[in-house]
Simulated scan of single mutants.
Amino acid sequence: MKLLFPRPDGEALQAIVINSAGGITGGDVFALNANAEKNAMLSLTTQAAERAYRAQPGQVASVRNSVTVEPGGTLHWLPQETILYDGCALRRSLCVDLAHDASLLLVEPLVFGRAAMGEALHDANFRDRIEITRAGQPLFLDAMTLHGDVTKHLAAAHIAAGAGALATLIYVAPDAEARLARLRAALPDSAGASLIGPDLLVARILAHDSFDLRQSLVPILRDLSGDTLPRSWMT
């Protein structure tokens, strides 16, 4: 792994995470630790979509990300899609510790095989966890486990109705409540948003494929980020 720092377009320090291995497979271990200092603004993204490839039997990949945001700081956690391939085995976690007055914009897009290539996930193993604390106290926790025939599982109407892509969006800021109506107006029918705290806004978006997901996500992220979406998202 390595980081690139493009010329800044605004106040934030932008960092692009690059997986020089070109993907993730069983047995790989990746870890990223970052800190946004007092009153700083940090924007973390990826160069392109991450790919979780087929793993050998008994091997599981691990991705652990941990970020701390100090008082008055702002974090934009904006990775591009993670694409799950058939046979993948991946454990992933993201831990964000916010100071009492820190702000956060977070998105995690996930793609269940490449629809354009006719891919399906009939044997996959994926476990994901997002944990956000504020001043050391739990603020948000979301966990997902997908195992076995994921495509069949997601086809159920009460689960995902055949969706091939999903995104989790979290916004923590004093103006979260004021953003709710505008966000809901921008969402497709296969999405929803809730204010689960006075300054905590959460949305989940389901889409047919990664293209449709981006069609929804890009305008929303531009708006919530103050039109500072990293350039790598636009290529």
Score class of each variant (00 low, 15 high):
Met1Tyr: 11
Leu3Asn: 07
Leu4Cys: 09
Leu4Asp: 05
Pro6Gly: 13
Glu11Lys: 13
Leu13Ala: 14
Gln14Ile: 07
Ile18Trp: 02
Ile24Glu: 02
Gly27Met: 07
Asp28Tyr: 06
Val29His: 06
Phe30Arg: 07
Ala31Gly: 09
Leu42Asn: 01
Leu42Thr: 07
Leu44Gly: 07
Thr45Trp: 03
Ala48Asn: 06
Glu50Asp: 13
Ala55Gln: 06
Ala61Trp: 05
Ala61Cys: 05
Arg64Asp: 11
Val67Asp: 03
Thr68Asp: 08
Thr68Leu: 07
Val69Gly: 00
Glu70Thr: 04
Gly72Leu: 10
Leu75His: 05
Trp77Arg: 00
Trp77Pro: 05
Leu78Thr: 04
Leu78Met: 07
Pro79Asn: 10
Pro79Met: 11
Ile83Ala: 09
Asp86Val: 11
Gly87Met: 12
Ala89Met: 13
Leu90Thr: 10
Leu106Ile: 07
Pro109Val: 11
Val111Trp: 08
Arg114Ser: 05
Ala116Tyr: 11
Ala116Arg: 12
Glu119Gln: 10
Ala120Gln: 13
Leu121His: 04
Ala124Gly: 14
Asn125Ala: 14
Arg129Tyr: 01
Ile130Pro: 04
Ile132Glu: 06
Thr133Lys: 10
Gly136Lys: 10
Asp142Thr: 04
Met144Lys: 01
Leu146Val: 05
His147Trp: 03
Leu154Thr: 06
Ile159Gly: 08
Gly164Gln: 06
Ala165Ser: 12
Leu166Ser: 10
Ala167Glu: 02
Leu169Lys: 02
Leu169Gly: 01
Ile170Arg: 00
Tyr171Asn: 00
Tyr171Ala: 06
Val172Cys: 13
Pro174Cys: 09
Pro174Tyr: 06
Glu177Thr: 14
Arg179Val: 00
Ala181His: 05
Arg184Asp: 02
Asp189Ser: 14
Ser190Ile: 12
Ser190Asn: 12
Ser194Ile: 10
Leu195Gln: 10
Asp199Val: 02
Leu200Gly: 01
Ser210Ile: 11
Ser210Trp: 00
Phe211Ala: 15
Pro219Trp: 08
Ile220Asp: 06
Leu224Asp: 00
Leu224Gln: 01
Asp227Leu: 02
Thr228Asp: 00
Thr228Arg: 09
Pro230Tyr: 00
Arg231Phe: 00
Ser232Cys: 12
Trp233Cys: 01
Met234Asn: 06
